[in-house]
Design a protein around this nucleic acid. Structure first.
Ligand SMILES: [Zn+2]
Ligand SMILES: [Zn+2]
Ligand SMILES: [Zn+2]
Ligand SMILES: [Zn+2]
Lengths: 156, 156
DNA sequence: TCATATAATGATACACTATCTCATATGAGT
DNA sequence: ACTCATATGAGATAGTGTATCATTATATGA
């Protein structure tokens, strides 16, 4: 990142503030691991798994164990810095929130790839139905399933 | 089920026909296990995991192994008799299709329970966006996340 | 009916992710 | 420096789902 990219930097600082606030509120320390993982996560664009994050750190000789990665991802989730999406496989998938526009996913049932598309705020019809049941909505995702372009071409 | 409940019976027969057609088409046999699992699945209302289905069979002294359960669930998926939903935990969740209206789920992030709500066909705004990318849509789900009524009461 | 081929099944081992345990290291506060 | 709570890592553990493979069941045709 350019040192002149003040806009992007301030967004990260904003997220860092959110994280630090959460840590202070819950009596957790600003440990070496938490700073390290926070910085790495902020550099990832798109989705990642705990395994990918761990290997990314190891390549940089930033030593951090798998349990610690999961523990700190849990902290980041609780702080609202990252979100988790169920991809339907056996991994937990995360992505940070700060520069990602709200979006949804369409999964290919053949190659297990996916495409993303922006949230259109058109699904609010559901909100009143759900809230009438006493459920407090904090977020939502649309999952589409189907066949990606490549798999269609392969099949044809 | 009452023997006079012809409507419900015919729906199951319809699903059975779908399954048998799939088996014939793909050269699979109508084995003891397939009949057994099909019947059990049809009696379940709502979601189930392979583990729950296996235990349900064992309680009835219907002996069937875990690998076979998974194999036959795969057949039922391929036949379109059941569908799979990613709940964000480490289990695969299934439900049959025959008497379930198309619906979506709202998951409680605190107790991991969920509520269901009907599909409103209001999310078609996404279809053109996705199909412009060459993706062929076969199905979709809305996942809402939040706090269920009970957990709100507990917190208050 | 019997022989043969093919598919289905179950026991077992296996791969893999995520979590738990607990001993040690770290660090904030006195 | 001392105290003590928290953070961390090594290793064990739990829990799903899958692969292997020998055995059993079923279909087909002589
Ligand atoms: Zn594909
Ligand atoms: Zn995404
Ligand atoms: Zn709840
Ligand atoms: Zn459902």
């Amino acid at each position: 990142m350019s040192r002149f990219d003040s806009r992007s930097t301030s967004k990260i600082d904003q997220e860092r503030g959110r994280f630090l606030k959460h840590l202070a509120r819950t009596g957790l320390r600003v440990s070496r691991g938490r700073e390290l993982i926070f910085n790495e996560v902020m550099q990832i664009h798109g989705h990642f798994t705990a395994e990918q994050l761990t290997k990314k750190c190891q390549k940089k000789n930033l030593k951090v164990s798998r349990p610690t990665v999961f523990r700190i991802l849990h902290d980041l989730l609780a702080a609202g810095v990252i979100r988790e999406t169920a991809f339907g496989d056996k991994h937990r998938h995360f992505e940070h929130v700060y520069d990602e526009k709200p979006h949804h996913h369409a999964f290919c049932i053949y190659c297990h790839g996916f495409i993303e598309f922006p949230d259109m705020k058109e699904d609010m019809v559901y909100h009143s139905i759900i809230e009438k049941k006493g459920f407090k909505i904090l977020g939502h995702e649309m999952h589409f399933y189907g066949m990606c372009r490549k798999c269609q071409e392969k099949a044809a």
